[in-house]
Amino acid sequence: MLLTLTLAASALGNPAAAAESGTAVEADWILQKIARPVPARTPFVEMRSSPMLKAPLRIAGEYRRPDADTLVREVRAPYAETTTIARGQATIARDGRAARTFSLSRAPELASLQQGFGSLLAGDRATVEQHYRLEPSGTRERWSLLMTPKDPELATRVRSITLHGQGAELRCIETAPATGKELQRTLLAGGARDAAKARTEQALAALCRSGIAR
């Protein structure tokens, strides 16, 4: 979930810039396109499954990047919760409760992730490639980028992360945890808007991968 959170920041920005069509996609091109200047905001829809839950938890809200060092995740439905990540700390604020702050160092995979995704946001391919193997596929209209952690420590937590997008728009992030089969999905920007129509998890999965709601 933390992975997605940081990643989602890369989707913040102007959606759907014009894409050149037909060309096979390159990692360089994707990284350039999804980099965004601050301030930025984008809606998201996240599905969270757990064997303990009757049905996957569907969370909707908005990601914001007010400045280059801060990321805000605001959940609006089914409850209100605001998470602010800045200066190595995450603060979770809930209605009627004192905000809880914990150090990101308690989730050590985040240290390298932050580094990785900081460079993702900046379009700095060299640094991203220090942390992940990149395998692009598809076309510039509809691409995906498979990211496999190089760092063994991170690999014990995350098997892979797949970014799905259309042109300059990052629409969905799929995270495969190292243990368990459940993929965690975050739909962003246009993907999040389309997700309003998708009622089932299969529909969301299809929307994430193909960009088409069934």
């Binding site: 979930m1 933390l2 959170l5 996240e46 969270r48 757990s50 303990m52 839950l53 938890l57 969370i59 995740r73 959940v75 409850y79 919760e81 998470t83 990540i85 995450a90 979770i92 809930r94 914990f102 308690r106 989730a107 937590r157 945890p177």
Partner: peptide
């Protein structure tokens, strides 16, 4: 429930 939907989910689940 909110914990499961929060960035801390991996820690508490």
């Amino acid at each position: 429930v909110q914990d499961l939907g929060s960035p801390a989910a991996g820690l508490v689940e």
